[in-house]
Nucleic acid binder design. Structure first.
Lengths: 330, 330
DNA sequence: ATGAAAGCGCTAACAC
DNA sequence: GTGTTAGCGCTTTCAT
């Protein structure tokens, strides 16, 4: 009646290869103890039979779990919900995970929450964790049994490898573009102060401005539209002759442009505005936003690959490039 | 890999409740055969001990799987990758799934692909499927062993429950707003022709225009920015006196506004533009986009809840409301 | 309605 | 190195 297609099991592979289940298992594991000929034979047979290990069985036996948790640190749950970045990250992660028969789930944690990783470690079903918006306290709270199964987007260390975008280079490129096109008094709306990896963009700003012999014009901010609105208002109030604003990210830039518009300030005529991330919306609005690229999808695909793929290929630190995307706003 | 810290197992619950593991299992399953007192006792003990069933063990024993697959039909893989909707859907799905200890993975399938569901059914590890952009052929291809574990976003039927946004009401509200504010010659850039659930918005357009005694101005389209660009160009070429354009979704509206801008047509002065979805970017650009709300997150949270939660509460068809969001563009 | 026992597919001890 | 033997935690026959 019901056509039940029996899936290929390790048992089938072992039998076909003329070895025991254990040997087959070892041969398929990357660094398992197995003789080279046996390993080759098992792998060939497995490939030929189209063997796909059952994640559930593997998890149950090995105690490893069947899902990747994208753990996002933020000041509030709402901040995560309204964050487009998370959607893009999940998109890439869920696509790669699918190829491994694994799923991805999402969890918010308060900034600096040292309880997150221990809780995740105690929880069954967690295969690995991708940490987004990592802070030092959280990084130091990695429990022993989660070691090697955590990857951080942003700052790394304490045995946790990291992947991030090269904000320093990207931000520098944007600033140079600003100065090269004649801007002189460039202000910056800062990223959230609690986020370590974001400090690199502030650093780039300081560095370039020092190089140009220009005084800094920094106001506090975050990664949301409202930071942009408020930030631009503060900038224009404190330094009315500002002729360019660098925002911590595109979203902030959108907020800044909204404020400038309401102030009757023309962008880019009076004030240039630049962001960071090159989100899809950056190219669509008016004026199209000058920004620096941020390969969010690449980063998160690489993160999941690092967790699920051959473990040998995981460098302690990886920086993906960011490039200037010059458009009309600056 | 290091072994896990021991968590509360069903065995612990059974022992504490003074029953066998089997009884405990039955008591926790919704409609399992168990006496009322035993069931109550087991549940109390389980709650007290903080028992969380191991998804992997459950999957292995029951053959159910540990992940939800978000299966998206689209004309190309790239169309999925650039779709903001998918990110938002995953966001909501992954958050709800996390509460059940389950992950979500993403898979693209060609439009009308009848092989998708059978393949997913044969695959181990698949607990359930959320079908996005469902078409009739795909809906009819649900294999027997996946029945009850598939939920469709869009059209339903063939034993597959569905959740969708009430596009008919939303689109009608937008159109009424257009006419109420004095627009007379309203064109529409159509949604993709292959998408059944999208026909409701075309229907709404036809209906309202017939009611107003106005001739239809429809051009073919899709859900991407480029459809908007091309669509608006076609509209203005064929009917230069058009004073409003209704786009199939916000993204299309952005594209349409870009074309109008390059044509020197003022929005909303000369031509009003309205979209559908109320994506975050709709509020940010200039002019802010008039549109209708689309509770994407609610829809996908409900879908995952339907797959993972108590099965009794899944209606065959559920329509979530869409409301006019009036802004400056129309 | 309940308990005992047999697996689900895999990995990890433990021998050899 | 390799096979043998136990489980991982749960659901499900089968008895009772």
């Amino acid at each position: 009646m019901e056509r039940r297609r029996a899936a290929v099991t390790l048992e089938d592979v072992a039998r076909a290869a003329g070895v025991s289940r254990a040997t087959a298992s070892r041969a398929l594991v990357e660094d398992g103890p197995a003789s080279t000929p046996a390993r080759a034979r098992v792998r060939a047979v497995a490939a030929g039979l189209g063997f796909r290990p059952d994640p559930a069985a593997r998890a149950l036996a090995g105690g490893a779990g069947t899902r990747i948790v994208l753990a996002v640190l933020a000041e509030s749950a709402a901040a995560v919900q309204h964050c487009e970045y998370v959607g893009r990250a999940l998109h890439a992660a869920a696509e790669v995970a699918d190829r491994y028969g694994v799923g991805v789930s999402l969890r918010w944690a308060p900034v600096h929450d040292r309880g997150l990783l221990p809780a995740l470690a105690a929880e069954r079903g967690v295969h690995g964790v991708v940490l987004v918006n990592t802070t030092w306290p959280v990084l130091e709270s990695v429990p022993a049994d989660l070691r090697g199964r955590v990857i951080s987007i942003g700052v790394g260390g304490a045995g946790v490898p990291s992947i991030d975008v090269d904000t320093l280079t990207g931000t520098t490129a944007v600033l140079r573009h600003l100065f090269a096109s004649g801007r002189q008094r460039v202000a910056m709306i800062q990223p959230p102060a609690w986020l370590p990896c974001a400090r690199r963009s502030s650093l780039a700003y300081r560095h370039v401005l020092a190089g140009e012999g220009r005084p800094e014009r920094m106001v506090a901010g975050g990664f949301d539209v409202d930071s942009g609105r408020r930030g631009a208002a503060e900038v224009m109030a404190r330094w009315p002759d500002t002729d360019a604003i660098l925002a911590a990210c595109d979203e902030v830039a959108f907020g800044a442009m909204a404020t400038l518009r309401s102030l009757g300030v023309d962008v880019p005529g009076d004030v240039a505005v630049a962001g960071f991330d090159d989100v899809p919306a950056a190219a669509l609005g008016w004026p199209p936003l000058t920004t620096a690229s941020h390969p969010v999808e690449l980063i998160h695909a690489a993160a999941v690959e690092a967790l699920l793929g051959p473990s040998a290929a995981v460098p302690a630190r990886r920086l993906l490039p960011s490039e200037l995307v010059a458009r009309e706003s600056a």
